[in-house]
Computed example of a mutant assay.
Amino acid sequence: MQQIFPAHWDVPVQVVDALTIAAAIMIALAIHWVAMRIARRIAARTPESIDDVFVDAAARPARWILVALALASVRQLLHLDDGARALWGQAAGMIVPLLLGWLAINLIRAGGRAVELSADISVTDNLRARRRRTRSAILTRIAVFVVGFITICLMLLSIPSVRSVGVTLMASAGLIGLAVGAAAQPALKNIIAGIQMAFTEPIRIDDVVIIDGEWGRIEEIRLTYVVVAIWDERRLVVPVSKFLEESFQNWTRNSSQLHGTAFFWLDPTADIARLRARLEELVRANERWDGRGFVLQVTDTRPDAIEVRALVTARDAANAFDLRCDIREGMLAFIRDEMPEALPRGRMELGRPGWSEPVALPVPPAPGEQGSSGGAGAIPEDGRA
Results as ranks from 00 to 15, higher is better:
L154S: 10
R336M: 04
L236I: 01
V226N: 01
R131H: 10
Q185Y: 11
A68L: 13
G354S: 04
L127P: 00
I105E: 08
A84L: 12
N319A: 12
A179P: 00
G368Q: 09
L223K: 01
L157M: 11
L117M: 15
Q90P: 00
E357W: 07
I218H: 02
A378Y: 05
A62F: 05
A23T: 13
I105G: 03
V208I: 13
T140D: 03
T140R: 02
I31F: 10
A143F: 11
A84E: 15
G174M: 09
L29E: 10
R45V: 04
L361P: 00
L117S: 02
P353V: 13
D207L: 08
G371A: 14
A320T: 12
L157T: 01
C325L: 12
H32D: 07
R345M: 10
I105L: 03
I152C: 05
A68E: 02
V208Y: 11
R347H: 13
P303H: 09
A273Y: 04
L236T: 01
F334Y: 15
T46D: 05
L80M: 15
T252K: 02
R292Y: 08
V96N: 10
G383Y: 06
M26C: 09
I4W: 03
I25S: 06
L275N: 03
G330K: 13
V74D: 01
R133Y: 03
R40H: 07
I203V: 15
P186G: 11
P344W: 04
M94T: 09
I210T: 14
C153K: 06
D10A: 10
D82M: 08
E214H: 09
I192P: 00
I38C: 09
A193E: 07
V165Q: 11
L71Y: 06
H32P: 02
R253N: 07
V55F: 04
L80N: 03
D82S: 14
L279G: 06
M26L: 14
L139A: 08
R309M: 15
I306E: 04
Q257A: 11
Q90Y: 14
A273H: 10
M197P: 00
L323E: 09
L100E: 01
